[in-house]
Structure formats: C-alpha cells, structure tokens
C-alpha cells in the first residue's frame, strides 16, 4: 500500500504527461494545464519543507553548541530578515528592504563567489594544460584561441584568431555538443521510462 500507490501515481502521471503530446483534445489540454499548475503549487510546499528543515538543523546546531554554531545564527538571521522584508506588510517583492538586500547582499556575494572561481580555474588550468600529450595540447590550443578571441591587444593577429575561434565554436564544438546532447536526450528517455515503469524507485526512500 505504501509503495504500490506511489508507483501507480508515477505510472499514471508519467503516461498521461507523455501521451498528451499525441492527444490535442480539449480534455487532455485541460488536465495538462492543471497538472502543470499542481506541480508549481506542490513546489512551494516542498520549498517550505526545505526551509523548515534548514531552520531545524541550524537550531539544533545552536542548541548543541556544535562547531561553528555562531555561523548558524548568522544564517538564520539572514533567512528571517529576508522573509520579514518580503512579507506583504513590508510591500512584498517590491519592498525597498527586500530589493536592497537582493542588490547589495545577494548579488555581490554570488557574483564574487563565481568570480573567485577564475583563480581556482587558473590553478587547475596550470595542471591540466601542461601539454603532456597531443590531446592535452589540442585542448590547450582550443582554449587559448577562444580566450584570445576578444583580446584587443593582438593587432593584425586579432581578426584571424577571432575567425578561428568562431569556426571552432561553430563546427567542431557544435559537432561534439550535438553528440553529447543526443546522448543526454536518449539517456533521459531511458531513465524516464525506468521511473515510469517502476524499475527505478530511489525517489521513495529506503523504508
């Protein structure tokens, strides 16, 4: 009962969502539209569950005075401040405080974290790009050409390098990306079939 019903729901929902592409009837389109809405509504409850779990884990960490517990206080303070700023009596998504927290805290931290990866990529590049084999050299040259693409200091070499970079991106790169995309597409079909037919049941957990 605890496992059979979810499997049955997966089967019905999966078959319906796949089959509705072949049945452009108004009933089918009606159910499809509402199924998408249900997915969105379930999403907010799932997110609430995730936030609750985050609060509980942080609270327990603080209560136990576990290692680095003051950072859990900071995280919870950030969470509650953001939620408070985005509530209706503060103006919701248009709230001054909410927009400023987003622009002056979230965006700078996020973009700096991504920017920081440039340094780690540089150190990884040093290890990866030591041209130890012909294939590593090919990788190195392709990367160099793409990186030099918009370099304004190359003088007369600038244009041929830019054209070579465009060619690499439009032909060999596209060819491999297509092969990878086809593999991903067929892999998703196989995995989806395994899920719908009940062969893959990892989503149900262990008990």
């Amino acid at each position: 009962m605890r496992k059979e019903i979810p499997q049955f729901i997966v089967l019905i929902a999966g078959v319906f969502m796949a089959m509705q592409f072949f049945v452009p009837h108004s009933y089918s389109q009606f159910l499809y539209r509402y199924a998408l809405d249900w997915l969105i509504i379930i999403g907010i409850f799932a997110l609430a569950l995730a936030v609750w779990s985050f609060i509980r884990v942080s609270y327990e960490k603080i209560q136990r005075k576990a290692d680095n517990w003051p950072y859990a206080v900071v995280s919870l303070a950030g969470l509650f401040t953001m939620v408070f700023a985005g509530l209706w009596f503060m103006g919701g998504l248009e709230s001054y405080l909410y927009r400023h927290f987003f622009s002056f805290i979230m965006i700078p931290i996020q973009s700096t974290m991504y920017a920081l990866l440039a340094f780690f990529i540089a150190s990884a590049a040093y290890r990866a790009f030591r041209a130890r084999s012909l294939l590593a050299t090919v990788l190195l040259l392709a990367a160099l050409v793409v990186m030099l693409r918009f370099n304004p200091f190359l003088g007369p070499l600038g244009e041929p390098i830019a054209r070579l970079a465009d060619w690499i991106l439009n032909y060999p790169n596209l060819a491999a990306k297509r092969a990878i995309a086809m593999g991903i597409g067929l892999g998703i079909v196989a995995t989806a079939l395994k899920v719908i037919l009940g062969i893959e049941r990892g989503y149900m957990g262990k008990d």
Binding site: R2, A13, M17, A18, F21, A35, W38, M182, L186
Partner: peptide, 25 residues
C-alpha cells in the same frame, strides 16, 4: 508525502521524456 512526490516525479519524467527526446535527440 510519497504521493505528491510520486506525482512530481511521474509527471516530470513523462514530460521530460518527450521534450528531451524531441529537442536533444
């Protein structure tokens, strides 16, 4: 809680199976 999860998993699997087959393959 497995019921809504099963709905999400099943509906997403069915939807992605067709859309990815068309777009990626």
């Amino acid at each position: 809680s497995r019921w809504p999860l099963a709905f999400v998993v099943g509906a997403t699997a069915g939807l992605y199976m067709m859309t990815f087959f068309v777009s990626n393959a």
